[in-house]
Design a protein around this nucleic acid. Structure first.
Lengths: 162, 162
DNA sequence: TATAAGCCGATCAAGTCTATCGGGTATCAC
DNA sequence: GTGATACCCGATAGACTTGATCGGCTTATA
């Protein structure tokens, strides 16, 4: 139906970030149950189960099972970066396989990687993206929501198209 | 089989950029036929037809039909940006629909867009990416391939993971 | 022991990506 | 004007991914 976006964050990653922010919001690191988070943020409960389990396996959150169970953050909100979460949920972020450190692969049909004229530009783009995503934490996101800043840079987004 | 990359450039876009660079390489804007480009760069010929047609419709290249036909660049290589090509071939680049100017859409389930804590971070990431991709032209890519520069920034890519 | 909550693997529908196919149409050489 | 060449264009198909659901198991509390 709708238009497809290429450089898109998955729904799963969005859910993951929402859930983590919900946990970060909980006072005193109090734990929350899946169904609570799911209902409050309109996330399919079973889907959220998978997501939180992934995050648990990667030591972002902890869980307690049983009747008094639930989830809580394992790391502090200012130690959890967006980049980290995205890599866990969506896999490598590099725009070309040959640019990834966590999953390097030669590009199909690329004969001389050292002189590839496409690679260099995307390497720059990737560096720029990664610098932002690896530099922003849940704590940053929580802060930004409270104090509304003026445009961060001179021209801001208005200079950009699409 | 392999690992999936999320923020990935499509094969189609890679073909498009290769083809455009091939046309930019041609001396005096001489035209090339599809099959020539396809063979030299290992691009499926019929697939490349579609791609070049798209680029023609968007006024990036011109074509001549018939026996002495072929393709040539319509704009000069320093007027064709990577971002432009990517938007034509892959569609909007924004990581969230609500960040796209060319195809704005409200994010599913996002209730208050002005206070969305996820949006802001991705807006920054997107700005950073777009600044690079909209700032690099085919001509840049051709230049960079010739003179091999030292690392552009201090630490360079080595500081980054994945 | 009953109940609540997380754990876990399998499966499914819809959509996307890559590529291919079969022909249609313009242009040039002769 | 006839044939060959090269671009134009819509339809289709297979493999894969994504988002989501299902059923049942395990652990812990009351």
């Amino acid at each position: 139906m709708g238009i497809r976006f290429r450089i898109m964050i998955s729904q799963k990653a969005k859910y993951a970030l929402q859930a983590l922010l919900a946990l970060a919001d909980a006072p005193d690191g109090e734990q929350l149950v899946i169904s609570e988070i799911a209902e409050r943020h309109n996330i399919p409960k079973k889907f959220l189960e998978q997501i939180l389990l992934d995050l648990k396996h990667r030591a972002i959150v902890v869980s307690r099972r049983g009747k008094a169970g639930g989830y809580a953050l394992l790391k502090s909100p200012d130690e959890i970066t967006f980049g980290e979460v995205l890599r866990i949920i969506d896999g490598p972020m590099a725009p070309l396989p040959c640019l990834s450190r966590m999953a390097y692969r030669r590009c199909a049909g690329c004969e001389d990687e050292t002189t590839c004229r496409i690679k260099r530009v995307f390497a720059e783009a990737y560096d720029a993206t990664a610098a932002v995503l690896d530099g922003r934490t849940l704590a940053d996101a929580m802060r930004e929501a409270r104090v509304k800043r003026p445009a961060r840079r001179g021209s801001g987004r208005d200079a950009l198209i699409a």
